[in-house]
């Protein structure tokens, strides 16, 4: 990957990587740091990363760093803090989006990251498996479980749609 190709990755992928990090961690400043760290790693490894693999490389680095952040926090499930930040800092379009953000915040870190990679970035099960060191079946099971959890949150008594 050349310098111009790296800069093209910055222009094309920094926003989506920032969204993924923000939705995963729930804090804008930590999300910024994570994006910078991911691009720093990409710059250092640019000789080994072909241009077409830039996006998956960045999201792989971001996914692992998100998991590290949550391990450091000692949390394996969604928290009220994350929930509040997601509600206050995420873009608000309508009520359904707010409920969905709340539902996402209830997921565990790994399931939330899988949902973000699937729904926001459009990766397939196989591609997500390559990023997360899971196999395709595990990705499918975790995603289906997360989808059912989100569905149940949406149809719960407080959030009937």
């Amino acid at each position: 990957m050349t310098t111009s190709e790296y800069n093209r990755c910055v222009h094309e992928l920094s926003d989506s990587l920032y969204r993924f990090a923000w939705k995963s961690i729930g804090e804008a400043e930590e999300a910024k740091d994570m994006v910078q760290q991911a691009f720093t790693v990409l710059w250092e490894k640019r000789a080994e990363v072909p241009p077409e693999k830039g996006k998956s490389f960045l999201f792989t680095v971001a996914y692992r760093k998100c998991m590290d952040v949550h391990r450091a926090r000692g949390r394996t499930t969604g928290t009220e803090r994350l929930h509040e930040n997601a509600l206050t800092e995420a873009p608000r379009t309508n009520e359904l989006k707010k409920i969905l953000q709340q539902a996402l915040a209830t997921l565990d870190q790994q399931s939330r990251n899988l949902v973000l990679l699937k729904d926001y970035e459009g990766y397939s099960y196989e591609e997500i498996a390559g990023m997360t060191a899971l196999n395709t079946t595990q990705v499918k099971v975790y995603l289906h479980r997360a989808r059912k959890s989100l569905k149940n949150y949406l149809v719960s008594k407080e959030h009937v749609i």
Binding site: Y18, Q36, F39, P91, K97, A103, L150, K151
Partner: peptide, 19 residues
Amino acid sequence: ATKPDTGEAPYVFPEKESL
């Protein structure tokens, strides 16, 4: 309905030039 609406307001990384 569990899938996010892709038409939401875009996220813009504010420090792009530093990268």
